[in-house]
Amino acid sequence: MEKEFTSVSIPTSLYKKIEEKIKGTDISSVSSYVAKVLRESLAREQDNKEVFTPEEEEKIKERLKALGYID
């Protein structure tokens, strides 16, 4: 079974900076902070590559018009 956590190396100076930053906050560990920030960053990087083909777009527009959603 795959392990739930794995190790990643970061510079000690950065670790200490984060340790100082999270003192007195709800964040329980440097690992928690790093996971939170990386998740945020990955989510922001997600591009929307969604494309409608002309046929699909026409079909959807016809339905939306028929239902009164667009003129």
Binding site: E50, F52, E56, E57, I60, K61, R63, L64, L67, Y69, I70
Partner: peptide
């Protein structure tokens, strides 16, 4: 009559 898929709502929002 009120049932739209996500592809339909996404196009609707774009058209609006």
């Amino acid at each position: 009559r009120y049932r739209l898929t996500p592809r339909e709502t996404r196009l609707l929002f774009r058209e609006k």
